[in-house]
Design a protein around this nucleic acid. Sequence first.
RNA 1: GCGAGAUUAACUCAGCUGGUAGAGUGCUUCCUUGACGUGGAAGAAGUCAGGGGUUCAAGUCCCUUAUCUCGCACCA
Length: 882
Amino acid sequence: MNTNLPKNYDPNEFESRIYNHWMEKDYFKAEVNPDKTPYSIVLPPPNITGQLHIGHALDHTLQDILIRWKRMQGFETLWQPGTDHASIATEVKVVEKVREEEGLSKLDLGREGFLEKAWQWRDEYGRKIVEQMKKLGNSCDWDRERFTMDEGLSEAVTEVFINLYEKGLIYRGNRIINWCPDCKTSLSDAEVEHEEKGGHFWHVNYPVVDSDETIEIATTRPETMLGDTAVAVNPNDERYNHLIGKKAIVPLINREIPIIADDYVDPEFGTGALKITPAHDPNDFEIGLRHSLPQIVVMNDDATINKNGGKFEGLNRYEARKQIVNELKEAGYLAKIKEHQHNVGQCYRCDTVVEPLTSDQWFVNMEPLAKPAIEAVKNEKIKFVPERFSKIYLHWLENIRDWCISRQLWWGHRIPAYYCQDCQALMVSKEKPHACDKCGSDKLKQDEDVLDTWFSSALWPFSTLGWPEKTKDLAYFYPTDVLVTGYDIIFFWVVRMAFSGLEFMDEVPFKHVFIHGLVRDSDGRKMSKSLGNGVDPLEVIEKYGADALRFTLVTGNSPGNDIRFHMEKLEASRNFANKLWNATRFVLMNLDEEKIAYEDIKDDLNTADQWILSRLNTVAKEVTDNMDKFELGLAAQKVYDFIWSEYCDWYIELTKSRLWGENVKEKQAAQYTLSYVLNNILKLLHPFMPFITEEIWQNIPVFEGSAIVAQWPVYKENQVNKEAEEKMELIMEAIKNLRNVRAEMNVAPSKKAKLIVLPGNDQAKATILEGKKYFVALGSVTEIEFTTDKEQIPADAVSTVINGAELFLPLDELIDFEKEIQRLEKEQAKLEGEIKRVVGKLSNQGFLAKAPEHLVQVEKEKQVKYQQMLDVVLERLQALKK
RNA sequence: GCGAGAUUAACUCAGCUGGUAGAGUGCUUCCUUGACGUGGAAGAAGUCAGGGGUUCAAGUCCCUUAUCUCGCACCA
């Protein structure tokens, strides 16, 4: 058959075409189908903040592999795509863009105007992201694409908010929260990153009222003293016992504050006296509540000092700190300054140091929700892969604090709460109420804030399927089978989906959480904009193809571990694709137009055919088993090795003599097997490299349908052919040995030689005879001669031993006796080493008594085998030395 | 402080339920054989971080030490 495949693999030529083909045929479509078992995955919706990066490529590749594999196994597969509005992250980007392009601020535009810009941004990037995902080969059901702020999902958000509010699980309160002075919004605990930083410990003397004494406190943030409302000591601290109940004076601002006792204070730390600033420190806040202390917020939303800070008003917190320290020093209040390492909380979006402060916010009461989510993992309704991540999940949930969900932003789901302007009453409802519940006033104003972006993504597994409607999709596809995501968003997202699903669907949102690591650069650094070491997946695809990218990302790494991204590896993957491409060209060149039926050739399959068929069967099992365990890297490696080493390097070579020979039946048997194995190779490889496998499939007329919907190979026990495998292994071992001998003796491949075989048993003789043509084709052998008479063997022959036979190559003038003796002595040493090991094992009574019988047997067989081989080598050495 | 991971060939990494160490890249030598030089053949190269222990048998299980990452919690 002619092949119209070009000589070199060129992914750009066909990847888009193939993708369009799949789209036209609706292969990605998921429908409720009672005759099939559903298998569903929700795509972690990428943020619309920009383009996708290589980390997305990894995340999506893993999911696409699972989805394609399950589709081929006959499941009704749903891969639910979509994008996330990413409230704070996107708002930051849009603000930046408007400022750069139009010189306008958020406030200049106003809420409506700003949102218009944000939606424009969303349209642009949402589209780009989808384009990128298609380039990667994602087989998502695009008809179902959702956006966290589209109508249906927004309704789900409102529904959940109201529901939780009515259950008392959402409340509004004045509490201490994390404030980002740059983004000017509150943040949840998960959104604060802690970094160890060098700072100072300022020791300040607070004068005690009506006394000459002072009490020395230590602080890392002197500016917060403007908000001090107490000094606390440990009740058991004898140094300060006598001061409890007295008053101290805050220096510089001269406020009198009580000296109180609280167990929280650690006498060993610092000076043992703690200034209490309830409005600007989480621990102080708690102490303040216990002692009914006033809360004095001393900062504005941009972290400048407010009017409560007296003369420091208007300074930013660092200027204020500097000035306060100076004035303390001048006034003699400063006892000492010490270097101090401490953890500083920073905003996860802009790295600005977070300011804890009290503020009116909305919270979710987490404890009742966390409980079932903890249970679900403990009783394995949700399983983490790798298992160790369940610890991280559990630890976080077991120590969870209430979730601050309100954000002082515009881009997001506006909180469905309304305040009466007349009586301050609060109403929570889907639509704006016509009048106040309490006073009947119609002056109602909606809460200005939006919800934490993770509030909506928490609902993703069911909101995308139509919830709160009781849809058929929901009944059929929920719960999803596996969630694939990076370990970095377990807190943000996995946890919140878990409790949301349990609360609103009464069932876990996913059965498995398959965790992967981060893609790092070749030096192991995190990829980031500031380092400029990011890799654009589109550029990689342009150069190497999507298949090579996918294969690179999936091979050679294990679940949960980070990956270093090397361009060299991409080349290796591309080369592999090229190898398969050319193997296909070979097959096509040697295939006839009409399909060969198995029935017609089944009696003509030779040992090589039986061997590769048996191996294929085993490999299919190994690949499937690894997939079942989410060991996608190992699965891919198995396919790779089978294709390259067994199919290309050996099997194709083994068919050549028959393909080019006269015997039609033999030829057809080879053709059949080549084609059959290639067909199954394409299936096994398809989830990993969908484009090239489909392209090849479409180019082979006898392959019906499409690779994407081909049936995944099933392991059949009765297809294992141990005998053929053993025979081929013997032949391959012999050929390898011959090649090795020749290479070591520096014999040119063009110098062919006769092979003289001294068989040790009939079976080995039969196998070698059967493999004659392979020795000729692959071992530079001209003919094979059997003998039992050692005298017949020329003295100038080099030799090698295999299990059951001794092989000689008479190379006459080419042989260097000294060299041959050295080579044999090396072989002798190797065999003696092996024998020593085996004998050691077999003379160990413990081993004989306790090891499984078959392993003992194996060792015994080895002993005999190695001993025979050694005898042969020794004999040969003796002959040579004479 | 608590927890997790890593430590295997020059480099990057696999190695699942314990049974004589693997891959890719690089390196050395050879090969224009009618699929592929993005290729083929052969080869060198590892006290599996150190130390204990369990076991007939440990890279694999347990303990411990060291180094490096990463989470979480932090005491002002």
